[in-house]
Amino acid sequence: MNVMGIFQWFENSGIGTSIRASTYDFAILECFHLLGMVCLLGSLFAIDLRLMGLGMTRQPVAKVAASLAPVTWIGLCTMIVTGLLLFSSEAMKCYENAAFPWKMGCLFSGLLLYFTLHRWVSRLDDARIGPVWGKVVGALSLALWFGVALAGRAIAFV
C-alpha cells in the first residue's frame, strides 16, 4: 500500500466518514484538540524555559520536569486521539496540503527529541547538565513544538 492508499483508507474509514457528515463533531473535536494543545505547549514551555535557565529557577530542572510530566502527557494523549480523528475526516485534504508534511515533520522530530535528549537532560542533576546542553535542548524543543503549532494552523489556510 502506498502513502496515498493510507490516506485514502483513513478518509474512507467509517469514523472519518461519520465525522465528515456531522455538523458538530469536527468543531467539538477541534475544541478538545485546542485544550490538549494548551496543556502540552504550556507544560513544555515551562520545562523548556527552566532548561534554558529562565522561569522556575529556584527548583531543579528534574523536579520541574517530573512535576509537569502528567500535564504534558494528558495534553499529548488528548492531541493525538483528537488529531487522528480530525485527520481521518479530511485525510485527502491533508494529503494535498502543503503545510501538513511540515506539521508531521516537526511533530515526529519533537516527539523524538522529547523521548530521547529532552528526557535524558531533564532527569540529570542541575550540576551535570552544564550551561550549554540545557539551553540547546530547551531551545530546540520550543522551536519544534512552535513549528507544529504554526504548521498546524497553516493547514487551514494554505
Binding site: 494548551v38 496543556c39 502540552l40 505547549l41 504550556g42 515551562a46 500535564v71 512552535f146 503549532a149 494552523r153
Partner: peptide
C-alpha cells in the same frame, strides 16, 4: 492568537 493562547493559557493552567 492561537499560538500565544497556547503558551499563556498553558502557564495560567500551571
Amino acid at each position: 492568537h492561537v499560538i500565544s493562547l497556547a503558551f499563556s493559557i498553558g502557564l495560567i493552567l500551571i
